[in-house]
């Protein structure tokens, strides 16, 4: 499809539901509800917080209570998540493995059902390393995916729901030259991702890393949790009850949590199973790359770390062992 026809696609998509897309706010890009294509940042590197926020809210009410009567709170609504990069789509697929695993999380599952996803090719920078985590290309997890090949987009259709939006006349069948252009664009993107990290067997290396190296690697860590809160695959949430002044009604809220915070492994009575940043970092890295690879190489944790701790550098030091 011609790039000039994107506004048409945007308008038809908007009929499905409110469109949430990358928008530039100051120095950052965030996913916000938009009403026109002009507001959308089509070429961006990474959003501050990942688009998972549409499925697992940063802070969301899960139920209301009145005495010991509990009632589910769920806002049903269709929406279009527009302009999602391959790494973030792969991040959602990793979250699916957790949140759709039986018993599934109803809130997540229903939103996953309701929200249509339109992927978009990305503009990598020197912090991206998605080719090392196998997440530079989205094989699934979207309805439509737009690949920028110059003057046109190659549109991949993955679902029937997505197919419905490609029936208009401005969608053309792909020709040989389009395939070649697509291949060239993808190859160029992959080549531009210079950063590499070898993750094979890193879990066991994490396990045998001496405490002295951990202390050095985490010396600057502020235990602020930013790395987790911007991560597209972090699944942890915390739960709290908010009580009204009548002291019988209120709501239960869940909120993104971070395993770098002191409260994460705290148990009743005050015991803490991960008291320092050393244990917490070992846990975080184990969770991301220790067993199955749950990192998508988006680089957010490095970019948004106030202490400028670099995940890839940390993993390289762990591999070397010094």
């Amino acid at each position: 499809m011609a790039k000039a026809d994107l506004p048409k696609l945007f308008r038809t998509l908007a009929k499905y539901g409110p469109v949430v897309a990358p928008v530039r706010v100051g120095e950052n890009v965030v996913f916000r509800e938009v009403t026109s294509l002009e507001e959308v940042e089509l070429e961006y590197t990474r959003s501050l917080t990942p688009p998972k926020k549409l499925f697992l809210g940063p802070q969301e009410e899960i139920l209301k209570f009145d005495g010991e009567k509990y009632e589910e709170v769920f806002e049903d609504g269709k929406a279009v998540l527009f302009g999602v990069h391959a790494c973030d789509i792969n991040g959602l697929l990793k979250l699916d493995e957790i949140y759709l695993d039986s018993p599934q999380d109803e809130y997540y599952a229903r939103r996953r059902e309701n929200v249509m996803i339109v992927g978009m090719s990305c503009v990598p920078d020197e912090r991206c390393f998605c080719t090392s985590t196998g997440s530079s290309y989205a094989y699934g997890g979207f309805d439509l995916f737009l690949h920028d090949i110059g003057r046109e987009y190659v549109v991949r259709v993955r679902t029937e729901r997505g197919y419905e939006f490609t029936k208009d006349g401005y969608f053309k069948r792909m020709e040989e030259k389009d395939f070649l252009a697509f291949k060239k664009a993808e190859e160029k993107k992959v080549r531009s991702i210079k950063r590499k990290v070898d993750l094979a067997g890193i879990g066991d290396l994490i396990d045998v890393t001496p405490k002295s190296l951990w202390e050095e690697l985490t010396a600057k860590c502020l235990a602020c949790g930013s790395c987790n809160l911007v991560c597209p695959t972090c699944q942890c949430y915390d739960v709290l009850d908010v009580l009204e002044l009548d002291i019988r009604s209120g709501s239960r809220i869940r909120r993104w949590d971070s395993c770098m915070l002191k409260r994460h492994a705290l148990v009743a009575g005050g015991g803490n199973f991960r008291p320092t940043v050393v244990e917490r970092t070992a846990n975080r890295l184990s969770c991301k790359v220790g067993g199955e690879i749950r990192c998508v190489g988006c680089g957010r944790c490095t970019v948004y770390c106030p202490a400028k701790i670099d995940l890839v550098e940390m993993l390289e030091r762990i591999r070397v062992g010094a």
Partner: peptide, 10 residues
């Protein structure tokens, strides 16, 4: 919610 995760590495 993964608050109860135990083990390190793989």
């Amino acid at each position: 919610c993964k608050h109860c995760v135990v083990g390190v590495g793989s």
